[in-house]
Nucleic acid binder design. Sequence first.
DNA 1: CCTTGATGTGACCACCCAGTCACTTTCTAC
DNA 2: GTAGAAAGTGACTGGGTGGTCACATCAAGG
Lengths: 203, 203
Amino acid sequence: MPTETFNNLPKDKQEAIIRAAVAEFAKSAYEQASLTKIVAQAGIAKGSMYQYFENKRELYLYILNMAYAEKKRFLQGVFDEDDDFFATLKRYYRRSYLFAKEFPLYHRVITHYWDYCAEFDQEIRSSRELRANEFIGMLEAAIENRQANPDIDKDAAFFVYHSVGKELIENFLELSEDVQEQHLQFIDQVLDVLALGLKKRKE
Amino acid sequence: MPTETFNNLPKDKQEAIIRAAVAEFAKSAYEQASLTKIVAQAGIAKGSMYQYFENKRELYLYILNMAYAEKKRFLQGVFDEDDDFFATLKRYYRRSYLFAKEFPLYHRVITHYWDYCAEFDQEIRSSRELRANEFIGMLEAAIENRQANPDIDKDAAFFVYHSVGKELIENFLELSEDVQEQHLQFIDQVLDVLALGLKKRKE
DNA sequence: CCTTGATGTGACCACCCAGTCACTTTCTAC
DNA sequence: GTAGAAAGTGACTGGGTGGTCACATCAAGG
């Protein structure tokens, strides 16, 4: 969505703009983020920004897509090994955590996006639906393989994993080195709760 | 936190102010909510508001406490019947849903509060900890009664119920009559997922 | 009737914001 | 070397915000 003018910019200038925008959209959600601060940080005039992007919204979407592209790359291959359904889930959540650790700014841009925001209600809903279908597909396969409980409501199951995943990743943002292993273990334990359930199992 | 002056106000004026403030804080989170709009809606001068409340923050906390007090009253007795742990949880979540339906504005004030907001980080953390201790206490009792799985990590279990509960209630805001039963059933199904787990059970 | 203290008021302050545009600078091609 | 196009600029517009304060109004007591 940026203009040709932006694409023709020298790399370092482009990067300065992107860096400033990422920092601001990581610090504040779309509505609270300040274009004025971004241009100040990037060291360009406000008018210039409007030659690179149509408006604040377009700049935001550009940055958001960058963040998502990076995350997608980072999560590549998580679903490839077709071992246990539950092992795959663990891999997915652990890897998401590591993404948050490696790209904390991109991570915050993404979580801010998910925090309900009227401006993007439509888009959020439809991308949620996409993820739901993916999850339910995997779950159905797991039921066929007799790994997963066939009596469970699939939409409810997605809902649970979705909300826990959201909160899980959102909750580990200090990201200091020494607690990383602790965090990963907590993720495992949370996923165990989801897999095994709270109710005592017979046998 | 309101001043004596506010308490001495005629009831209808007090109520008009409260109504306007509740509406605004239900529509927008603290930072986005506009005091200017509140006083306009309430039909008073801005200066008057500052004779009733020290500032926006105090007004907000007053309204927030009202909402919480109402919710507390509404949830009274949910934990009294000491039947099944899982039955109690269902009662709790179902009743929370009904509160959201009966007092949608108070409900939205509360959910906006939980949406992370730098201004109240401290308070949110400590009230979360309180709820965690309550939950874990109940869970320990359930383990003693041999209702709950003793192998599960208790903090992880709270984390799961907390995040799912948050998302659950936040998600049903259209609140049209004909889907209420459907919503309550979905809540039950979600709680079944949490109780039984996704993994196939033996036997 | 007048004084006095409590209450009510809205123009105003300082600050923020997204977006615009007349103008300047830089680059390119002839 | 210069004309014309492309790119860069920042003061400005119109809008918003929370909070203040000199003044107006009102109520009650002497």
